[in-house]
């Protein structure tokens, strides 16, 4: 089951570049929330702040408060523990090239020290079924390398890998931007299936995608959150002129 995310006065920097300015919003549990905006608007930085991946860059800096399920992830826990609770799917599929399909899915558990073989088998099967990849790969789970799958399959493998640790939140940073339309449709279907069980935050540059999968949408511009509301409201009756300009394609 997912948990809600509470963000208060979040600021982020890359070196001297102030990439996020005073972001405050509430992402409800067990829903899909889409973040849209032109490239460089800070939406990717924002999701990377939600699981403390932002700080893996040595020149990055964050201030403010992010509460995931009530816990302040910056002051009350460690980055490693936060990331175990929050799954992340990246823009480009990044399966571990030296590992089989099975090992890829099991990696989050194994690399954190989990050893029980039977549970691992079950988790791998469940995760691959959840990511709709099971039927395509079940015969060569341990034989085939994760890197030998097609791009769309690789991305679903990465989703399965993220789901295997049973996260409370799933962050997706433009998960379909490197994929063909058919694979994209599959990923979108998947998000639909998964959002009843997980809180999903999806960054996308594709407005139709946001409209199709998300209950709520936030519009970012120049490092600020311009508007955050129900997807329906954002796309039919935006409260801000800049949002309207963006979704009608007048810029960006």
């Amino acid at each position: 089951m997912g948990v809600s995310i509470e963000v208060n006065n979040l600021n982020a920097w890359y070196g001297t570049n102030h990439t996020l300015q005073d972001i405050t919003l509430h992402i409800p549990a067990n829903e899909a929330t889409a973040l849209i905006g032109p490239s460089g608007c800070g939406k990717s930085t924002f999701v990377r702040c939600l699981n403390r991946m932002h700080e893996t860059n040595p020149i990055a800096k964050v201030t403010g408060e992010v509460r995931v399920g009530g816990l302040d992830i910056y002051s009350e826990t460690s980055a490693v523990e936060v990331r175990r609770r929050i799954g992340m799917v990246f823009q480009r599929p990044n399966p571990f090239p030296t590992m089989s399909i099975y090992d890829n899915v099991a990696s989050g558990l194994r690399l954190n020290g989990y050893r029980n073989r039977r549970t691992l088998d079950e988790v791998v099967e469940r995760s691959l079924k959840q990511s709709a990849l099971w039927d395509e790969v079940k015969d060569e789970l341990k034989k085939k390398s994760g890197a030998s799958l097609s791009g769309g399959q690789q991305q679903r493998l990465c989703i399965a890998r993220a789901l295997a640790v049973d996260p409370e939140v799933l962050l997706m940073d433009e998960p379909a931007s490197a994929l063909d339309p058919v694979s994209t449709a599959k990923i979108e279907d998947l998000i639909f299936q998964l959002k009843s069980q997980y809180t999903i935050v999806i960054v996308t540059h594709n407005m139709q995608q946001a409209a199709r999968v998300a209950e709520r949408t936030g519009f970012f511009l120049n490092g600020r959150l311009v508007e955050f509301d129900s997807t329906h409201k954002i796309f039919t009756n935006p409260g801000d002129k800049r949002t309207e300009d963006y979704i009608t394609g007048r810029f960006g």
Binding site: M1, G2, V3, S4, P28, A29, N30, E31, A32, R67, V68, G69, G70, L71, R85, E168, F192, K195, S196, T199, M207, Q208, A211, R212, A214, E215, T231, H232, F235, T236, I247, T248
Partner: peptide, 20 residues
């Protein structure tokens, strides 16, 4: 501008209680 599908999954009645 865009045709909006209403989300198919029902929204939970309440947000998850704090204390995740």
């Amino acid at each position: 501008i865009l045709r909006i599908q209403e989300p198919r999954t029902p929204k939970p009645a309440d947000d998850e209680p704090i204390g995740g």
